[in-house]
Amino acid sequence: MALGVTPLGEKIESALSGNRRSLARLLSRIEEGETLELPEVTPWTLGVTGPPGVGKSTLIGRLVEYWIDNGEKVAVLAVDPSSPRSGGALLADRMRMDSTDSGESVFFRSLATRGHPGGVSHLLSPMTDLLCYCGWSRIIIETVGSGQAETRIVAFADRVLMVDGPDRGDIIQAEKAGIIELADIIAVNKSDKPGAKRAADSIRSSLELGNDKNLPEVHLVSAHNSSGIDELVVAIEKCSSPDWRNRLRITERLLSTWDSRLIMSDGLDGVLDDLETGSITLDEALDRLLS
C-alpha cells in the first residue's frame, strides 16, 4: 500500500538516518524489482542453512543476542517457501526469535521465496547492500530448511553456517549432502539432548574421510540453554571462505539471475499454457521467454 510520494533518494536518506519504516519500504521496493543506486559497500553476511527442525531460527536468536550485547547492529533476513499452488506463504521464523522484536539494534525481515528456485532469490544481494549501507554490521540470512542439494546460499553469504541436530539418521545422509562441503562452520544444535555428541562425532569423522586439509570446525551447541554459543560466534567471526568458493559463488549468482529472469518474464503464463497443451517444446519455450 505504498503511498509513493517520497522520491527514492529521500527514502534512502531517511533509512540511512535510522528510519526503520523507510528501510522496510525500500526492502519491499527491491523485492518488487526496483533498483537502488547506492555507493559500493561490503556487507558482512552469514548464511544459515540446514534441515528443517534442527533449530536454525532459535540458534539465530542466540547469535543475535550475542552480537547486540557486543554493540553490533544485527539484521536478519529469514526466507520461507511460498506455496507453489496459491503463491501465498506462511512466514513464521519470527515466532522463534522473540529477542528480535525489541531494541533498536536488530532488524528482522521475513521473505517469501516467491517461486525462486534454490530457496533464495538474486534480490538478496541488493537487500544486504542496502542494510550494510544503513549501518547494519551483521547480516544473517536464514534459508528455507534445506534438503541435500541446496547450495545457492553461497551466492549471497560470505560465510555459511550449517546447523544439524541429533538423530538425523545415518551419517551417509550428511556425506551425500552438497551443502556440507560448502559449510565454513558446522553447528550441531540441541546438545542438551542425547545423541547430539554422537552426531557431531560422526560428522567430524565423515569430514576427515576426504582429502581436504581445511576442514570446517564442528561445534556442539544448545540454543535452548546457550551452551557453546560464545565459542561458536568466535569461530564464525574468524572464519573465511576458501578461494575456490569464488567461482562457485559467481556460478550460483549467474544461475540465480537466470532463474529470476525466467520467472519474472512477462510472457511466462502464455508459454506455460502452450507447454501444457504441448504446442511448443521446452527449448522453444526458453527461446521465447529470453528473446
Binding site: S82, S86, G88, A89, L91, R94, D98
Partner: peptide, 19 residues
C-alpha cells in the same frame, strides 16, 4: 490466508503492543 495467496507473518503468542 496463505492458501488464499497472501504472505502471512505469524508472530506467535503473547506479544506486547509495542512488539
Amino acid at each position: 490466508l496463505r492458501d488464499g495467496g497472501h504472505e502471512v507473518v505469524y508472530t506467535g503468542l503473547r506479544r506486547t503492543p509495542s512488539e
